[in-house]
Design a protein around this nucleic acid. Structure first.
Length: 564
RNA sequence: CGGGGCGUGGCUCAGUCUGGUAGAGCACCGCGUUCGGGACGCGGGGGCCGGAGGUUCGAAUCCUCUCGCCCCGACCA
């Protein structure tokens, strides 16, 4: 491709509304342009990268024995009503009506459609297992789209669904996909981690996230510094250190604490460390109001709370509900005397002479001792923090940020049962098909690659994702020798199967060099008059910045060896 | 949806508080000089100041309503 002919509008300035590096660089490099919030055009350079990612995914999925299909973006409501998600999914699901007033939605994921497809075609265990995937546009009406392709509302995703007659078969495929995902992200040149994760709205029994470590990541990952344990903090198990305090329990007493509501205020006013405060949060759930206790310096993990209470949703109670449960305004709740179920984080157990709300305005209790003064169900309901004990070994957890680029789930029979996707087993017995599902965010993977591979000048593409393998820069296109040599090398590269970009614009050298650094092609061949007089051209690697001069005739071979 | 902010040539922004009829840099077009790390000079084109209503002799500027976008919290590939 010739630069002069390509729609490749690079930007000298960073657009005001971009806030992560990948988004800024994608905009500046002329890869993407915003059409609406969370909705983007992919320009030629951007599409090239997306195609590279897709091709790697496609090859590896095929290699793993999966078959590619394509499902519609527009899905009739009935399918979602069958699975029960039409009601559950919430506003992320963009719903609309056609001219006949029939209800549809834009597919945010395709369990329903694929389950419908398979239940129509598969009758016997002989036709299983099956792994079907597609690379397709999804739409999720995100509350807050941001970070360019990293969290768009419309995005391309590879989603695969597997169908099995037995649990063992499903587990085998889960493992197969786990290995496949590792290969895919390795081939993309990414530093990633597979971590245990919560199953969320997709449902199912267990799952792993594939996370690219990056400062801008929206996920917090806890990983052990000695063993291989890694999990999303939403999921990370917390093991409390046994800390036997030598302090003697004192009788509890009520103290006045006018207007002191937050942990900092109470801690400061009563001169008690946050670690000795019992934070009491009132939650509304579909099972009624509950109280959740965590140590003052920890955060409650709502997912864990939801799991332990066996509720299908939990949310922080409103002011009125807090009054109803505690008889006091928010900020003064405590576990003593509550009539609702009390769930306490394991860390509470070790508090001696702690402080908590008195369930009356402007008062707290001090010298509270959990085992003596109130009853609670103890469980792990807090978020893991840095330096927590590893649940698997004697190491400690480190919290890092990451971008979730892939997720694999063992679904079980959630959808097959709801939608009647069954098969006949060897004994002629009808059974629900066991399912797994496996997603990869294509655009997000490309964005993650930039987050991990860039410098102050621009993108540094990992070779497998680079939109071109090599950029040929003709320093002065008006010089006949330069122009002839550049075109010849460019042609020879193409003949050799190397995708090349020829910067044949009539621009000053500086402009072309800046653009080359910005768009981040791995290898640059620079043809300038001075070197050319000695029969030499310059070859520069984007990543290392290493420059070497080679003979014109050797340039193509040198580029080839740098790219292999 | 709650809280905060912003909408002025293609892009980045000034002008808004203190109304007087729209600017800069970059980009774009022409000519000339320049030419290996985002050149310079001269000339030029381009803006219902997000939209609607109002106040006023006069509104980018003040008021009301609306739409869009961005940031901080509850979702996920």
């Amino acid at each position: 491709m010739r630069f002069s002919k390509m729609l490749l509008p690079t930007l000298k300035e960073t657009p005001a509304d971009a806030d992560v590096i990948s988004q800024k660089l994608m905009m500046r490099a002329g890869m993407i342009r915003k059409v609406a919030a969370g909705i983007y055009n992919l320009l030629p350079l951007g599409l090239r990268v997306i195609n590279k990612v897709e091709e790697i995914v496609r090859q590896e999925m095929n290699r793993a024995g999966a078959q590619e299909v394509s499902m519609p973006v527009v899905i009739p409501a009935e399918l979602w009503q069958e699975s029960g998600r039409w009601e559950q999914y919430g506003k992320e699901l963009l719903r609309f009506r056609d001219r006949h007033d029939r209800e549809f939605c834009l597919g945010p994921t395709h369990e329903e459609v694929i389950t419908d497809m398979v239940r129509r075609e598969v009758r016997s265990y002989r036709e299983l297992p099956l792994n079907l995937y597609q690379i397709q546009t999804k739409f999720r009406d995100e509350i807050r789209p941001r970070f360019g392709l990293m969290r768009g509302r419309e995005f391309t995703m590879k989603d695969a669904y597997s169908f099995h007659a037995t649990d063992e078969s499903a587990d085998l495929e889960y493992q197969n996909m786990y290995e496949t995902y590792k290969r895919i992200f390795e081939r993309c040149g990414l530093a990633f981690k597979a971590v245990e994760a919560d199953t969320g709205a997709i449902g199912g029994r267990f799952s792993h996230e594939f996370t690219v470590l990056a400062e801008s990541g929206e996920d917090a990952i806890a990983s052990c510094d000695t063993c291989s344990y890694a999990a999303n903090v939403e999921r990370a198990e917390v093991r409390e250190a046994d800390s036997k305090s030598t302090e003697a329990p004192k009788p509890f007493e009520r103290v006045s604490s006018p207007g002191k509501k937050t942990i900092e205020e109470v801690s400061g006013y009563l001169k008690i460390a946050p670690q000795k405060l019992i934070k009491t949060l009132i939650y509304d759930t579909d099972k009624g109001l509950v109280a959740a206790l965590v140590r003052g310096d920890y955060e409650l993990n709502e997912i864990k709370l939801k799991n332990i209470t066996d509720a299908s949703w939990v949310k922080l109670a409103e002011e009125g509900q807090v009054r109803e449960a505690t008889g006091s305004p928010t900020g003064f709740a405590g576990p003593i005397g509550l009539k609702i179920p009390v769930y306490a984080d394991n860390s509470i157990k070790y508090i001696v002479n702690g402080a908590t709300g008195a369930n009356e305005a402007d008062a707290h209790l001090i010298n509270v001792n959990p085992s003596r003064d109130f009853k609670a169900t103890y469980a792990d309901i807090r978020n893991a923090v840095n330096a927590d004990l590893c649940p698997r070994c004697n190491g400690h957890l480190e919290i890092k940020r990451g971008i979730e680029v892939g997720h694999i789930f063992k679904l079980g029979t959630k959808y097959s049962e709801a939608m009647g996707a069954t098969f006949l087993d060897e004994e002629g017995k009808e059974r629900p098909i066991i399912m797994g599902c496996y997603g990869i965010g294509i655009g997000r993977t490309a964005a993650a690659a930039i987050e991990q591979n860039h410098d102050e000048f621009g993108i540094i593409w990992p070779k497998p994702l680079a939109p071109f393998g090599c950029e040929v820069v003709a320093v002065n296109i008006k010089d006949e020798e330069t122009s002839k040599t550049a075109v010849a090398i460019y042609g020879a590269l193409k003949d050799k199967g190397i995708d090349a970009l020829l910067d044949d614009r009539d621009e000053r050298a500086g402009v072309k060099f800046k653009d080359a650094d910005l768009i981040g092609i791995p290898v640059r061949v620079t043809i300038g008059e001075r070197n050319l007089k000695q029969g030499l051209v310059e070859i520069k690697e984007r990543k290392s910045g290493q420059v070497k001069l080679v003979k014109v005739e050797e340039a193509v071979a040198e580029v080839g060896s740098l790219l292999s």
